[in-house]
Design a protein around this nucleic acid. Sequence first.
DNA 1: GCTACATAGTGAAGTCACTTCACGATATGC
DNA 2: GCATATCGTGAAGTGACTTCACTATGTAGC
Lengths: 156, 156
Amino acid sequence: MKSLHDMPEGPGIARVSLDRLFEVAEVLGAMMQRGVAERGLTTARAGVLWALFHDGPMTQRALAGQLGVTPRNVTGLLDALQADGLVDRAAHPTDRRATLVALTSKGRNVTEALRGGRDELAAVLFGDMPPGRLDAFTAGLETVIERLRAADPSGR
Amino acid sequence: MKSLHDMPEGPGIARVSLDRLFEVAEVLGAMMQRGVAERGLTTARAGVLWALFHDGPMTQRALAGQLGVTPRNVTGLLDALQADGLVDRAAHPTDRRATLVALTSKGRNVTEALRGGRDELAAVLFGDMPPGRLDAFTAGLETVIERLRAADPSGR
DNA sequence: GCTACATAGTGAAGTCACTTCACGATATGC
DNA sequence: GCATATCGTGAAGTGACTTCACTATGTAGC
């Protein structure tokens, strides 16, 4: 009676592919962290800027939901971003408990620079890849994402 | 004079691909963290076990080099792993300054379970993919890794 | 053999991302 | 008008890191 674990060397090619995937995740994470640090940010703080950039001003609670972290954590991240003049906390027009968080113009500039960096990286990585191959590759990534989310009940 | 940043929507498909790559990195990271937490570990501690599992007993300094962190940090990680009975610190046979770190049998069992989980995940993700497609996908990943490392002077 | 210098591990102190819990201020349903 | 849910934040704690200083030991060079 052979189970998965009895295989002499595991699932072979599939295992190598997964290892490559982990490797990409690691190197990409390191690269992003470095890019973001160059602009005086951390990945968590950059995530806040990114969310505000894409979805506009928001309540701290909404931001917490968007980022998948606790509201308390958002408070801390915003304290730092506000100290750097990248975001602004304003009174909510109708709910006096809430604060509306928005990017300052400086914050918008920084985030646009971040986006520029991402686009440059995309060009370096994929710019010369023939469309057919790139599409296939991206489809593969999407399949992986899908199955990963399906396999993980903690889904987000 | 058009530069990359003047493009109305950026590099298009390439940008989407990179976003998918980030998404994979994120979801995969979350999944690994969850899998490892199920066995009472953290990703950093699991990394230590993994290194010892693959390369055998090692000096703390060597471990630090392998993991790309400071020796001081390794001390802390090992303290936790030792408290859980997963690793063992023994005197180095020839250098009395150094300690030789090795997996205990419990540590080996846990690490083998981790490996089993990885193999199962690999099977779920790639088990049913036709070899040709899988090879192409993995080659794509390797190209990405290569270029990422080339683009990052901090290379590891 | 002894001095000079490099190296192995760790204490002390600090940063950053995160959490849970408690609490005051406000909104809201009935 | 009052009970109750919700918004943000103080307090306290964890885990992964870092740098710096220090002790104990190895290793050259003379």
